[in-house]
Every structure is written in C-alpha cells, then in structure tokens.
Amino acid sequence: MDIIFIIVVVFLLLNIALGLFRVWRGPTVADRLLTTQLFGTTGMAILLVLAGYLKDLNLLNVAITFNVLAILLVIGLVQVWKKKKGESP
C-alpha cells in the first residue's frame, strides 16, 4: 500500500518540475501566476497524500493554509496590476 502513496507523490512532484517550464516561458505575468496556482493545488495534493502515508492529520492544516491563501495572490494580481490604465497583466 505504501508504494502507491510514494508513486503518487513522486508523480505529483515531477508534475511541479514540469510546470516550471511555463514559469520559465510564460509570456505574461498572468501565465506565470496560473502556474503557481497549479503548484499550490499540486502541493496540496502532495500534502494530502503524505497525510495518508505518514498517518499525520496535522498535514491537512498545512494544505488548508495553502488553499485559503491562494486567493490572495489571484486578487492581488487582479487588483494591483489593474490599477494601471488600460493594461492587461
């Protein structure tokens, strides 16, 4: 059973590594921000799987922290970059 957890975590970690490509290329800030949102989601998934693997429910708190604070970045991007006239982020 443990081997499945490990395979899933490794797969998700490799997903993050692959997502770095978009951070590297992504022409606009919005592209890169979406990638970090993807990282956040993937990181949460890793934390949830690890919580099952390590049998430690405190990891769920870390996952929720990531989750509720992810909105801050999105709103931050929309509001901070919108204030300049007529430019998309």
């Binding site: 800030v29 604070l69 970045l73």
Partner: peptide
C-alpha cells in the same frame, strides 16, 4: 504563499 506573494506582486 500568501503574504510574500502579494508583496512581491
């Protein structure tokens, strides 16, 4: 993920 993110943006 939260505070530094917004500051950096």
């Amino acid at each position: 993920a939260g505070f530094m993110g917004v500051l950096f943006l």
